[in-house]
Write a protein that binds this DNA or RNA. Structure first.
Lengths: 113, 113
DNA sequence: AGGCTATACCTAGACTTCCTATGTATTATC
DNA sequence: GATAATACATAGGAAGTCTAGGTATAGCCT
């Protein structure tokens, strides 16, 4: 990420996490970091120190549901599903994002437009 | 602004300020707050505690040039122009913003797209 | 056996950015 | 002379992300 990406990311991380889990049906933290990086062509490189506390926070708020799962070839992982409340929140955040992007455009659109 | 707007705003404020000053040729802090609010239909309501320190910071960094001006009907105001370095920086930030918005879309675009 | 890499998660403390709350001062309006 | 609008200033706090460390398992290579 360049110098500003983590600033721009501010407030969008939970939308990205919830959205990805919603799409993937089930995902764990490490996977989400890699998947976001892959999909954005390297633009988003969320740090572990950001991801794991945030997942727990979203779980505590009832937006995600997590459970430990054993793997055949590595350490246990905590897999998350999105809850109905999480889906609601995701939709709200997506709408906020659209409004925000629209507002940026409005500011830069010239007066006569 | 709703609860999240100030989070989404993170890292975009200087782009908005520089962009508006660039468009308006010259502007002062109070004007910028009102103009942003007007143009975004109330979405952006930057606080004075955000605006004034930021303007001074941008001036100190050589991106803006400010001078005090008397007014006929009120207190003095500090008017700002954008410098060549400021325009460069603005273009860079606008490009970053486009990249960021694109990255968000990429993450949410389904695999097959 | 030992070292390296990838996977997978955890935490404390720092940093940046923006907001809150408050203060000063001028002019116009009621 | 009280209030509102204009106009700027500042200290302290809140929120979100990063830094920089840590633990642990499994596979691969020498």
């Amino acid at each position: 990420m360049n110098d500003y990406s983590s600033n721009l990311l501010h407030g969008n991380t939970d939308m990205l996490i919830l959205g990805l889990i919603d799409e993937l049906k089930s995902a764990h933290g490490y996977q989400l970091i890699k998947e976001m990086e892959r999909r954005s062509h390297g633009f988003f490189q969320l740090k572990e120190g950001t991801m794991y506390p945030l997942l727990r926070k979203l779980e505590n708020e009832g937006l995600l549901e997590g459970r430990w799962e054993a793997t055949s070839n590595g350490p246990e992982r905590r897999c998350y599903l999105i809850t109905p409340r999480g889906k609601e929140f995701l939709n709200y955040r997506k709408a906020s994002w659209r409004d925000f992007a629209k507002a940026i455009d409005l500011v830069f659109r010239t007066e006569t437009a």
